[in-house]
Amino acid sequence: MKKRNIKLAVKIFLLCLIIAGFSYGVKIIFFPDEEAKIRKTISMTVEELERKDIINFIRHFTLDYRDCFDNTYGTLYIFLKNNIDMFKHLDIRLSQMEIEIEKPQASIKFFARATLITKDGEVYKEGGRFILKMRKEDFKWKIYRLDEMEYDFD
């Protein structure tokens, strides 16, 4: 009798686990929250840059975009269009992403490292901490500011 009860409890527990997992999956796929949308936008932006798909990459930026390298929407597009074919391989990895949302804006801090191989075989590696500002335009999160964060050792 006792053994039967334990088996039943285990079965109920497993059933609850499956229902919870399924519900979570449905929520993530069909009803993503703003943070998930931002993460997806950033990961798409990185993937498109790695694929050298500049047309789709630039769509994630607002027309008044500015960054710490003195780029605007226009100069960024022209720079990439003129130089992207110099690279044979580009690998960008983002980590420690921290997202703060204050609608309709969001601020994202992260550590990025990039490995770039030119067609001549030269390898460049760079890393840095960045702060990305995004806002909603046409129901989509778009990047309007990118700044590098200084290293602090206080």
Partner: peptide, 10 residues
């Protein structure tokens, strides 16, 4: 090995 004082840690 040392790291930055604030997040994201490097």
């Amino acid at each position: 090995v040392f790291r930055t004082s604030n997040k994201p840690y490097v």
